[in-house]
Design a protein around this nucleic acid. Structure first.
Lengths: 217, 217
DNA sequence: AATTGTAGATTGGCCAACAATCGTACCAAA
DNA sequence: TTTGGTACGATTGTTGGCCAATCTACAATT
């Protein structure tokens, strides 16, 4: 465990980026909404230059778009974008599952099973948000088990864009049955079967067909 | 053809980013080399603020790294990084090949075959650089045929990091036999066989084992 | 109705300055 | 020799103001 990460000395840029990113993901800032550098600067008590870098950062992550000299706005998505997110996410998650299976350890198995168990238990209850969070957490666990920094980073980017869409479309994927469907995936990873794990992971990505077409709302 | 694209109105930020990126990729700036904001600013005749945004951009692309208050430097890579690039690149290219095969058109087939033909012809000659360029071009064609903006973007990022490593390690993958090995891939895409295309693409990525271990040089 | 100004808003980019932090060299004490 | 401190220079972090370039919307003109 790195102690350097315990001491929080993050730059204002990073902190501001987190706040704005969060606001987009949970739907506080909706797609198409304009973001004015000066307004944001005053709002967060920072200078325009700092906000500028943050916006460029978020632009690289695909959360905001920029029209030269016209302004920034929260990224909007159409069916094409949704399809891209879906295919990429499935592929990345498949890779993660395969790698995780190939290098699974004792502790990894424990961690994975714990995460899965928690999801199962929450699925009994009615707290949809909690279930969703546990679902995302299970996926995140698999990603981290793959021990692949770049994969983790790219997955996070895709996931953020996906979440921003979900929040904006006011669409919640029904997480109630999500528990059992992950059983085969977890089992395959624990068994060290990379090929099987990859296939199961791809099966488990929230469907594209179920989500598209709600852009007009 | 859009006339708007003929008039170069790219921001200084973008242009500077291209120049520095290019310098890293072709080995002019080697891994570990320090990049000082003020120095770069003077060198390119820009202000520090502009350079700052560029460096953050390149940081997001994985080409430079940043230690808070200490400085920027060209990203260094170890075997772990190389492995990450290899696995990610193979997976992304596999996805691209599958998608390209699934939506291949008349013009697509023509474009792909032309690109392949050029590679074949160059392989007869001895211009290694030209062969390498044609090889990259073929891959880029496949990516563009997949019609997937995010995939293209992520692939470009991975490829840039890969190229920067190649240049720094002074390692050139022998491109002479590269021609024939791509035959099956091109054929599978043109035949519309997605599964086959994906498999062939993954086979064709420059091997990981052949490259690693040259970090100390 | 279509075109053409025109004014305001916003980003593009620059500069100078100060604060915070890192790295290093150096010095002192055990 | 080692340890600890400290002072200093280099570099990034962050700010504020400034002007130019460009977009947008709207009014004026034809």
């Amino acid at each position: 465990m790195k102690k350097s990460e315990l001491i929080s000395k993050r730059s204002l840029e990073d902190q501001a980026a987190d706040l704005i990113r969060e606001a987009i993901i949970n739907g506080e800032l909706t797609p198409g909404m304009r973001l004015v550098e000066m307004t944001l600067a005053k709002e967060y008590g920072l200078s325009r230059g700092t906000i500028r870098i943050v916006l460029h950062q978020l632009g690289a992550e695909g959360l905001v778009t920029q029209v030269p000299y016209a302004g920034w706005s929260v990224a909007e998505m159409d069916d094409q974008d949704l399809w891209e997110l879906y295919t990429l996410r499935a592929t990345l998650e498949g890779l993660a599952a395969r790698l995780a299976a190939e290098r699974i350890t004792q502790e990894g198995t424990a961690e994975l099973k714990a995460s899965y168990q928690e999801l199962l238990e929450l699925c009994e209850g009615d707290d949809l948000n909690a279930i969703t969070r546990a679902d995302l957490d299970l996926h995140k666990t698999i990603i981290s088990l793959s021990n692949h920094k770049r994969l983790a980073q790219q997955y996070r980017m895709i996931e953020n864009q996906f979440l921003s869409y979900i929040a904006a479309a006011n669409r919640t994927f029904d997480p109630h049955q999500v528990g059992r469907t992950h059983e085969a995936l977890v089992a395959a990873i624990c068994a060290g079967d990379g090929t099987q794990a990859e296939a199961e992971a791809i099966k488990n990505i929230t469907g594209f067909e179920e989500l598209k077409g709600v852009t007009e709302e």
